[in-house]
Amino acid sequence: MTPVLGEAPARLPVRGVPARFRHLLAAEWIKIWSLHSTYWVLGVGALAVVGINVNSAASNADRLAHQTLRPPERPGFSDRLFLFDPLATAFVDPAWQLFMIIAATVGAIAVFGEYSSGLIRTTFAAVPDRQAVIAAKVTVVSMVMLALGVIVAGTSFGVTQMLLRDHGGLSLGDPGALRAVAAAALLAPLCALVGMAVGAAVRHAAGSVVTVIALLLLVPALFRGERFRWVKEIGNAMPLSAWERLVMNPARVHDLGKYPLTVTEAWIVYGAWVTAAIATAVLVVRRRDV
């Protein structure tokens, strides 16, 4: 049919192609690596954690090399109490607490960064399915942080045990070694997901970081007493307490206190925090306006 002169041509309706999940994964991958801070935070953070652990191992190796006297025998005490624990040098508390904050901060940035820049409006306009968007974000962040956790935990363990090879250095086949490395590696995605949940709820840079530090480090410190069982149980339910239990060397004697956390319970704590963090992030993003 020939159009009439001066009449606007009819326009065919434009149908958008729905985004598939792999497209969302690719978009989130580009987002996380488009930030220069991602490289700096992850790179410097990983080097700092490994450096602290390696320094601890080197210092202990030097001390043990010049140590000639054994501790005096005392009735009621096993020699195992006096044995040096090489596994502890790969998982020094300050180093891994720093790693927890780094991982949680990266997870929080992945969420509140889009809200603060306004990019989240564009994202939801292109993909109205908010649940799919947050699922892709959770998947990408978890994969990146798991890879980082494996690298940092594996490097820390390998280098520290190599430095302590003349003083009882361990291999992955020794009791508790593989469990400790796995727990340290999984700590990174766990904390990143907690950071994502906090970032989705707070949506502010400083507020998210402060909340994450309080939740992951300060709360466990407040609930370490053993006078009341409920206080100790709350402390046992925190990721830091679960990590500390999982990296303990079963070949050494440890004072676990009146209400100890078992290895099985520690893994349950890991799973519960991951589930709660993902559920919180999805619920908040779906319910709250941008």
Rank of each mutant, 00 (worst) to 15 (best):
G199V: 07
T211C: 06
T139L: 13
L170S: 10
G168W: 04
A197D: 09
D166I: 00
G199F: 09
V144Y: 02
H204A: 15
A201S: 13
L146N: 04
S156R: 11
L178V: 08
V181T: 05
T123R: 01
M196H: 14
L163K: 10
T122D: 14
A132T: 14
S117M: 05
A201V: 04
G169R: 09
S117Y: 06
T122R: 06
G176Q: 07
G173E: 14
S156W: 03
G207K: 07
R165H: 12
A205F: 13
V140L: 10
A132V: 09
T160I: 04
A126V: 12
A200S: 12
V152P: 04
R203V: 05
V152G: 06
A200N: 08
M145A: 03
V209L: 14
P128W: 06
V140T: 01
L163Q: 09
I134K: 11
D166G: 03
L119M: 09
A205Y: 11
I151N: 02
A185S: 10
L146H: 04
L119D: 08
V127A: 10
S116E: 15
V133Y: 15
T155A: 14
L148A: 11
L170V: 05
V198F: 01
L148R: 01
V159H: 07
V210T: 13
T123G: 09
P128R: 14
R203P: 01
F157V: 07
A135S: 04
L186W: 03
Q131K: 06
D166Y: 08
G154Q: 00
I120E: 00
D129F: 14
R203E: 03
G118M: 05
H167E: 14
S116V: 09
I151S: 02
S156H: 02
D174E: 10
P175R: 13
L190P: 10
A126L: 14
V127R: 05
R165P: 06
R179P: 00
S156Q: 06
L148F: 00
P128C: 03
I120Y: 11
G173K: 14
